[in-house]
Amino acid sequence: MRIEITDGEIATAEVLAGVKAGSDGAVCSFDGIVRNNTRGRQTLYLFYEAYREMALEQMRGLAEEAVARFGVRDVALVHRLGRLEVGETSVLIAVAAAHRGVTFEACRWLIDTLKKTVPIWKKEFFVDGAVWADGEAFPSDLSAGVRELDVVGGEKKV
């Protein structure tokens, strides 16, 4: 399994070629790229940052889980950090297996889960300012601790 966090351009063709083996009948890939706008606001560029060591461990765990859960043969997961221009690849996922069905399922599951649980954040730089993108809420088993605290402490949630 090729699991990487990189500061440079993602070598898409090389990653896709590297995941193929003789027993495979399909490789399904997801190429996440920088869009030129968010809700109509024109994007100049994005800046990605990560809790690097943890993100790598989480990505490894996801790849292993995808193999176990969907029965695919191999997974490649590569995420880029730093400044990315419109159209550049921020995340590349490739899944290889003997038959195509599970590669679609595993690829979809990997990107959806990665975006909820792998500690990577992006700041969007617009023509007229910059904001940290709203994250998706953590799955309850990850954030429950902090939510519980609100109840126990009797504090008002904002």
């Binding site: 809790y51 998706e136 953590f138």
Partner: peptide
């Protein structure tokens, strides 16, 4: 570097990271 619930007891030298919702992009 592992998600930890509120009741986790901390120890000398622990590295505690506060993580806002992650945003590979919603």
């Amino acid at each position: 570097r592992e998600y930890a619930p509120a009741e986790t007891v901390l120890r000398e030298g622990d590295e505690v990271a506060l993580l806002p919702p992650v945003s590979g992009g919603r």
